[in-house]
Every structure is written in structure tokens, then in C-alpha cells.
Simulated assay, not measured.
Amino acid sequence: MPGSTIQSIERATAILEVIARQGGSAQLAVISDITGLKKTTVHNIVRTLADLGYLHRRPGDSAYYLGARILNLARIAGDDDRLRASLRPALTRITEATGFASFLAVPSGDQTLYLDAFDPDGDGANSLVGRREPLEGTAVGLVFLAFMPALETRVRLRRDLSNDGVTDARLSEVRRLGFALDLEYFIRGLHCVSVPVREQGEVRAALAIAGTKTELTEARMRDAAWKMLKISVEVQQY
């Protein structure tokens, strides 16, 4: 109905559309010029959108970029197939480089969703595709919590992550290393390594390998992590 729109929502969506049309990022002044909104108004709206995870800024860059939360909405609306297709080569390369089954996962709400797997030996890795797991405890979940601040904040508002071993120190270690290790925390006898995959600077997905603790020792995990990081960087989209 005419006149029934909420002005703040209308302005926020207009700003998101401007940023999308500018290639996924835009300066505040550009947003103001195109929308016709005052800079102070634009600043207040983009700050709120950033706090919610719909926009983000990069260190040393004053532009605003589309954030992980809005990119995940696009994924939910049908972007999963694109991610599978674009990252399938990375899965095969990781398995060839490490000798272990590899997995592709994305954040879905407050959980992890497995989109794809590659296991040439057919030992059951594909059964994980479509499965959801909690963020807490898993290597993949640690990657998302460590590198997606809006997701971490949202989850912390709902539950105490420290009860599940997700301490500030553990997340800081993941950020420092660039990868996450799960040494039997989630499943007894199973080790897992995970690295982030970025798109336009934002973490969109995670790549992982898993194996028994006798086969995938901690030393092999760390060696595999560096190989996986190299592959992840090579497939990142800017």
C-alpha cells in the first residue's frame, strides 16, 4: 500500500542495492551521492548494517563491502550449486595433497552445513553431505566463529560458548594460525583440520579434512593445514 513502507528499511535496502551495483563495495560519499541521503544518515545505517553482519569494512579501507550475512542469504537462495562447482577442484587438490577425504562446509544459521565431499576411496565421506553440525567443537565451526565476527556475536548472545570449549584463547589461536584443529574434541578418535575460504575478503565457506587420530596425527594435521591454506588462497575470489 502507498505510504505504508518503513523509511529506515527502505533506506537500508537502497544502500545495499547501491553497494551491490557498485561491484560489492562503495565509499560512504558515493552511497550518499547515489541515494541522495545525507552522509550522517548513510553513516548511521551502514554502521548498523555492519554491526548486524550485512556489511563490513577492511583494515585500511574506508569502503563498505557486502558482508557475510547477506552473502549467505544469496547462498540460501540458490548459491550452493555455484560454491560446489567453484570449490570442487579445491577439494580434489586437497585430497591429493594430504591423502585424506575432504569436505566443503558453509555456515547455516547457527550451525555448519556440509555442501560437498571428495573421497576417492568411497569410505563414507559423502554421507556427510547435507548434514548439519553445531559450530561448537568442530574445526569447521571454529573457523566460522573465529573469522565471522557477526556470527560469533550472534551465537554468544544465545549461549555460552566457553561451556563447549570455545574460549577466547582458542579463537585467537585460530585467527593467529589461519586454520583450526580438532583433536578428538567433537568425535572421539577423530581428528579434523579446517581452513577458511574467502570471497571479496569475507569468509564464505570452509574446507576440511578428517581422519582417525592414528592416521591424521597432530604433526600431519599441521603439515596438511599449510597445504590447505595455500590451495584456499589460490581459489579465493576477490
Rank of each mutant, 00 (worst) to 15 (best):
H56N: 03
L66H: 06
D81P: 00
T95W: 00
F100V: 03
Q111L: 12
A26M: 05
G99V: 11
G67K: 12
G23D: 06
A74K: 09
A97M: 02
L55M: 12
G78E: 13
I76G: 04
T40W: 04
S102N: 04
A77S: 14
H43R: 15
Q22Y: 09
I76R: 14
V42H: 05
P107F: 10
L37F: 15
K39S: 13
G23I: 08
L55R: 02
S25H: 13
I94G: 04
A97I: 05
R84S: 09
R88F: 07
Y65V: 04
A74M: 13
A105M: 07
A50H: 02
D80F: 10
G67H: 10
L49C: 09
A85G: 08
K39Y: 00
A74R: 13
I31G: 03
I19D: 05
G36W: 01
F100T: 03
L49K: 04
R75N: 14
A20R: 15
F100A: 06
Q111I: 00
L66E: 07
E96L: 01
A29W: 01
R93V: 00
R21S: 14
D33S: 13
S108C: 08
L28P: 01
L28Y: 00
L104N: 06
L66C: 11
Y64C: 12
A50Q: 12
I31D: 01
N72L: 15
E96G: 06
Y114V: 15
Y64I: 05
D79Y: 12
R47V: 12
A101Y: 01
Y114E: 03
F118V: 02
S86I: 07
D79W: 08
D81G: 09
T92L: 09
D119Q: 02
S62P: 06
N44L: 12
R47P: 00
R21T: 10
R82V: 15
I34T: 12
P120E: 09
D61C: 01
D80W: 03
F100R: 03
S102P: 03
D116H: 04
Y54K: 03
T48M: 11
A68D: 10
G23F: 07
I45C: 07
A29Y: 03
G60I: 08
P59Y: 02
R69Y: 07
